[in-house]
């Protein structure tokens, strides 16, 4: 085993922050996609059931809004 590197905490912090940025970027994308998928999917099922296509639209918009709200809630607020 090569030796564990010296604990240079300031450098580590900067790196960790960069990693967190990357993770947050993918996380935000995932939230928006899932929002559209989940509520768009529900809207699609309701539309099929009621034979009225307007619910797909409502579901997609609702999901997109909810996804964007979650992105703001998780990543966008001033801590």
């Amino acid at each position: 085993m090569p030796p564990v590197p010296p604990d240079d905490s300031s450098d580590d912090d900067a790196k960790a922050l960069g990693r967190k940025g990357e993770a947050d970027a993918y996380g935000a994308l995932g939230l928006v996609i899932s929002g559209v998928l989940v509520w768009g999917g529900v809207g699609f099922l309701v539309s099929e059931r009621l034979d009225n296509p307007v619910f797909v639209m409502l579901g997609l918009l609702l999901g997109m809004g909810a996804g964007l709200y979650l992105v703001w809630f998780r990543y966008g607020r001033q801590q």
Partner: peptide
């Protein structure tokens, strides 16, 4: 509104 989105984003989308 939000819980299903979080669930899907973690378990399926990731």
């Amino acid at each position: 509104l939000l819980a299903p989105i979080e669930f899907v984003s973690t378990i399926i989308i990731r």
